[in-house]
């Protein structure tokens, strides 16, 4: 069996303690949460930290709170917790859609939202979800807290704005009345990384027109939302013709690579197809949520 290279291990007792440990052990120290990305890399000896700082005891970061206009999600919130939360299902169905297809139920018992976002794997689902929901990442370091938009936080494949001596501690997701969202992924098998996936969030105005929209793509070489769709959708009533055009724009905006999961044109096609699907579902969920409010 594959085995990691030797390292020293320390368990952090608080966020401040974790930051102090990161500061003390420097560049060759790594934080481990669920460990389901880092430990396999260490077993392959592609990652060889000298120090592993275990933050699983930071229960202070394991929370889900509806706090006025935002939902605050602690970085140590496990995937399973997100998937099973009624508030999350009601407010952000896209998160439930995505969580259902992230790895498998057992991995989801250990994996955390913070770990997923910080790993920033190009095929990782929650980064897209957070882009689409226009979430804000709260990062704490020796100099205090920083609030970063996803565009600022997520710098590219495997790269975030979190410095070596900082921790992602919270994700804040704005709550919008009259909104609906959805995520759909194509995978070769349950539990596989995405061939491609798309997420959308739509807010409907009182007159039924789209007042806000965001579309994001996973595993097709796009680290930010498909901003081109906003211009054609905002102010319009949801319509299949618009979804088709949005899909076309999404397929043009992405930049996939050919691999074992499929050729480039297939992945572009999926960007198109899945964009249409998630917009359709998001709009109908938004409409349902509007009618819930009126009732």
């Amino acid at each position: 069996m594959q085995i990691p290279a030797p390292f020293d291990y320390v368990r952090a007792s608080s966020v401040d303690n974790a930051l102090a440990l990161l500061d003390r052990h420097g560049a060759e120290s790594r934080v481990v949460a669920g460990g389901h990305s880092l430990l396999p890399m260490m077993k392959l000896r592609l990652a060889r930290p000298d120090w592993l700082i275990d933050i699983n005891d930071l229960f202070e970061l394991d929370y889900l709170l509806v706090d006025g206009p935002v939902m605050r999600i602690g970085a140590m919130t496990r995937h399973t917790t997100l998937l099973e939360s009624d508030d999350v299902r009601r407010l952000f169905p896209i998160i439930c859609d995505a969580e259902r297809v992230i790895a498998d139920p057992i991995v989801r018992n250990r994996g955390t939202i913070g770990g997923s976002l910080c790993q920033a794997d190009p095929a990782e689902d929650l980064s897209t979800v957070c882009h689409v929901l226009e979430a804000v990442a709260v990062v704490r370091g020796p100099a205090g807290e920083r609030m970063l938009s996803m565009a600022e936080f997520h710098r590219g494949p495997y790269e975030t704005a979190v410095a070596q001596n900082e921790l992602l501690i919270e994700v804040r997701v704005p709550i919008r009345a009259g909104s609906g969202s959805a995520y759909e992924k194509v995978e070769r098998r349950v539990g596989d990384w995405a061939v491609a996936a798309a997420g959308a969030s739509v807010t409907l105005a009182g007159d039924g027109t789209i007042s806000q929209v965001a579309v994001g793509l996973t595993a097709v070489g796009l680290d930010h939302n498909v901003t081109e769709v906003e211009a054609i959708l905002v102010g319009q009533a949801p319509a299949e013709t618009l979804f088709i055009e949005a899909g076309r724009l999404a397929s043009l905006a992405c930049d996939p690579l050919a691999d074992q999961r499929g050729p480039i044109d297939y992945k572009r096609h999926l960007a198109d197809e899945l964009t249409r699907r998630v917009l359709r579902v998001s709009c109908s969920r938004a409409a349902a949520s509007v009618s819930d409010i009126t009732i």
């Binding site: 498998d104 070769r188 098998r189 349950v190 539990g191 596989d192 990384w193 074992q260």
Partner: peptide, 29 residues
């Protein structure tokens, strides 16, 4: 029929060398 294959690239590198790439059906398939 649906997923299992041991592929090689042009250099002869095995592309099916772990259960991340050599896919076996789960109860869902």
């Amino acid at each position: 029929a649906l997923m299992e294959i041991i592929e090689f690239d042009a250099e002869g590198n095995c592309l099916g060398g772990s259960f991340m790439d050599y896919l076996i059906p789960t109860a869902m398939e």
